[in-house]
Amino acid sequence: MRTLAPQVVGIVSRRFGDFDSAEDAVQEALLAAARHWPVDGVPDEPRAWLVTAASRRLVDLWRSDAARREREARVIAWEVPAYDPVDHDDSLTVLLLCCHPSLTPTSAIALTLRAVGGLTTAEIAHAFFVPEPTMAQRISRAKATIRASGEGFRMPSAADRDARLRSALHVLYLLFNEGYASTNGDAVQRIELSREAIRLTRLLVASLPQHAEVLGLLALMLLLEARAPARSDGSGALVPLPEQDRSRWDRFLVTEGLDLLRQALALDAVGEYQLQAAIAAVHDRAASAADTDWAEILTLYGILEEITGNPVVTLGRAVAVAMACGPRAALEVVDAVEDRLGTTHRWLAVRGQLLEMAGETAAAAATLDRAAATATNEAERRHLAALAARLRSPRVTRGG
Results as ranks from 00 to 15, higher is better:
V337M: 04
E356D: 12
L355E: 09
M357I: 12
A364V: 09
D369I: 01
A363K: 06
H345I: 08
E356I: 02
L348I: 05
M357E: 15
G352D: 03
L331E: 10
A329Y: 14
L354G: 01
A362N: 14
Q353N: 15
D339H: 13
M357G: 14
A336M: 04
E360D: 02
L331M: 15
R328W: 08
A362K: 13
E332S: 12
G352Y: 01
R346P: 02
L368H: 05
R346A: 15
A349E: 11
P327L: 12
A363W: 02
L348Y: 11
D369H: 06
G342N: 03
V333C: 07
R340N: 00
R370D: 13
A363E: 13
L331Y: 04
A363H: 07
P327T: 12
L331W: 07
R346T: 12
A365V: 03
D369F: 00
R328I: 12
T361D: 04
V337P: 02
D369K: 07
D335W: 12
A358R: 11
L354V: 05
V334D: 00
G359D: 10
E338M: 06
E360P: 00
L348Q: 13
R370I: 08
Q353W: 11
T361H: 03
G326A: 13
G342H: 04
A330G: 02
D335G: 09
E360M: 01
G342F: 08
L355T: 10
D369V: 00
A366Q: 13
D335C: 10
A329G: 15
A364P: 11
V333T: 08
